[in-house]
């Protein structure tokens, strides 16, 4: 394979393409192949999915070589099954279009697939990276404009790095209690 990416780059691009399938984002640069670029704003990749997967705390690090290799094998099989043209310049999963990546990931994560636990597990880390930025301290992630927390509209903390919401209630009676409520507020 001419100009084939080396092993580490293959792994990184493959996992990035998987993460981008879970929560898609915009391309980081013109010609970014791993990120398909089908969504406005950063996705799981920009949110730090690779950093989260590679953190020793997560316990996924040692499995990543095998996962990337297996994902590319599935992509090869998918390409052959659908008679798609081969693109040797990028790893097989990266070579798939955004729609094809989604279709393959749906197959791999559907109940009954023998490897379902592997792929849902990998997906959960990608979701977690986007939804929480768990590879970095939340205060830092917010300060640095973490794309996931920004997308969620996660509020900023007070100046001491702690959250407090002094206004938290409509402070009005909005429903009648169940007629059988006990004097201590429990169901009878």
């Amino acid at each position: 394979m001419a100009n084939a990416p080396d092993d580490r780059q293959t792994r990184t691009m493959t996992l990035e393409a998987f993460a981008d399938t879970i929560i898609p984002g915009e391309k980081r640069w013109p010609g970014d192949r791993a990120v398909a670029g089908i969504s406005e704003g950063g996705g799981a990749v920009a949110a730090g999915a690779l950093m989260l997967l590679e953190m020793p705390e997560g316990g996924m690090e040692n499995a990543l070589d095998d996962l990337a290799e297996a994902l590319n094998a599935h992509a090869d099989e998918y390409r052959e099954r659908h008679a798609l043209a081969e693109d040797g310049s990028v790893p097989p999963f990266v070579a798939l279009s955004a729609e094809q990546r989604v279709a393959l990931v749906v197959e791999l994560t559907t109940p009954g697939h023998p490897e379902k636990e592997l792929w849902t597990g990998l997906a959960l880390f990608c979701n977690m990276a986007f939804d929480t930025g768990a590879h970095s301290h939340t205060v830092d992630a917010l300060r640095e404009g973490h794309p996931g927390l920004v997308t969620l509209g996660f509020a900023a903390p007070d100046s001491d790095g702690l959250w407090r919401f002094p206004d938290f209630s409509y402070r009005e009676r909005l429903a009648s209690p169940h007629p059988d409520t006990t004097p201590t507020g429990s169901p009878a």
Partner: peptide, 25 residues
């Protein structure tokens, strides 16, 4: 209802509008 949060309030109000009771827990 003074300690019920906005989320609790909106749920309580929606229950009431649908003809249900709702209790602060």
């Amino acid at each position: 209802w003074n300690t019920a949060t906005y989320a609790g309030g909106v749920f309580g109000a929606a229950c009431a509008r649908a003809g249900h009771t709702a209790n602060p827990v």
